[in-house]
Design a protein around this nucleic acid. Structure first.
Lengths: 225, 225
DNA sequence: CGGCAGTTTGAGCACGATCAAGCACAGTGG
DNA sequence: CCACTGTGCTTGATCGTGCTCAAACTGCCG
């Protein structure tokens, strides 16, 4: 792997690995590899032995869970510059979710065993990882009170506002993923999502063109959630 | 604080601090204190500056969240031998939940700043804490697919089976907390909880006496969830 | 052109929330 | 001793959100 590629620069600049010395970073790179995935291609299955964690360079990765009953739930959609499966490293062996690419995707796979060894010797890196996991936990806690306290419409609005890039004019969100995936991510059925979108469109709060959602009145939407 | 008390032994035997040397443990104890709480007394409020994390020696602590809209949700009920608020240490300042005792409670308060200093020098302790947080995250993920995939009745049954002490005959759970707290913990209304209990009782799956719930047919209940 | 996946729309239904009333029990004060 | 009050729990009636089943519509690819 070329250490000067923009990919690697992206990884190096991210929060987690910024604590590393030059030689430590080289060391991590020596045990990392870049994977290129076609749309729909899997990264790992739920229950697989977990050997790596990942950083997304480009594309979108879906993290999903299949309940014993067969029902499926999208847990997260991971976009570029984010890590995933880094908590599974400590969970004792198997991935609790499956991961697959939703579109053409490039990611870095980092070796768990090697990274764990590095962690032992680097308190700063440890603290950063602890901080990362804490933030992720906080996100999950928010998710839980979203699910219990808010309606489907409120969750959708909250999600859209989260995805909204800073200072985009007009304020708009590019979904990039099939709507039924968004629906599962929000814990609702595709039909319900469709109805909510129709209702918001009727109230002139949003416009929908292809996969693009334009938020006409961000202030009003914010008041909603 | 007497280092030979059974309280301290309990703390020392727990998973998290088992990695410490004798002198390190003494060091932690030097910055820890035992607090005794009356029923209903608060430990900290949502939004308080976070300075300590805690280990429950006896009693029950309720972790709750108040949404901006004023709605309230019980996030967790912490029982003896468990930690809480150890993730907030890395979250940058303020507790995302409030904590209060539901009955007479005794807990150990551990100093964040001091513990962080200790973490930097002890890779093993770091890894243990990472592992603890990962498990907690996994619990939250389970919680989420409970909320999205299962009905109120299934969540209640799941909760009861979780609380069921090993090898208790007859299989029974002592709630120890008002039912409206359980309801909030499960994300349902008190009335709904009451109805579910009535239905399960009608089907002879459980019996309810005071705060005691007897599970008549654990196998059948397990099949439910 | 026909098949197929994703999406939309419609109709009916179920779960759980809300509003409301009733019951049991404890504490308080006349 | 008995009203009076407050709290926690239960039960009933009603209503709304969102799920299910079903049908129609879209764009896409063979």
């Amino acid at each position: 792997m070329n250490p000067d590629s923009p990919d690697i620069q992206q990884l190096k600049d991210g929060y987690l690995l910024a604590a590393l010395s030059h030689s430590e970073f080289e060391d991590v790179m020596a045990h990392a590899s870049v994977r290129t995935l076609a749309p729909g291609e899997g990264v790992f299955d739920q229950g697989d032995l977990c050997t790596h964690f990942f950083f997304v360079l480009a594309g979108i990765v879906k993290l999903g869970r299949i309940a014993p009953s067969g029902e499926e739930k999208v847990m997260d959609l991971v976009r570029p510059r984010h890590y995933f499966a880094e908590a599974a490293m400590f969970l004792g062996g198997r991935y609790p979710v499956y991961a697959c690419a939703l579109e053409a995707t490039r990611l870095v796979a980092l070796d768990n065993a090697h990274f764990l060894r590095l962690l032992r010797g680097n308190g700063d890196l440890c603290i950063r990882l602890l901080s990362t996991l804490s933030q992720r936990m906080h996100g999950l806690v928010n998710e839980i009170d979203n699910l219990t306290l808010h309606s489907g419409a409120e969750r959708l609005i909250g999600y859209l506002l989260e995805q909204l890039p800073e200072g985009a004019v007009p304020a708009s969100v590019w979904l990039n993923v099939p709507k039924h995936v968004i629906a599962s991510r929000l814990g609702i059925q595709p039909e319900t999502l469709s109805r909510i979108l129709a209702k918001l469109r009727a109230e002139r709060l949003i416009d929908v063109h292809e996969g693009m959602i334009v938020l006409n009145d961000v202030a009003a939407l914010r008041r909603f959630s």
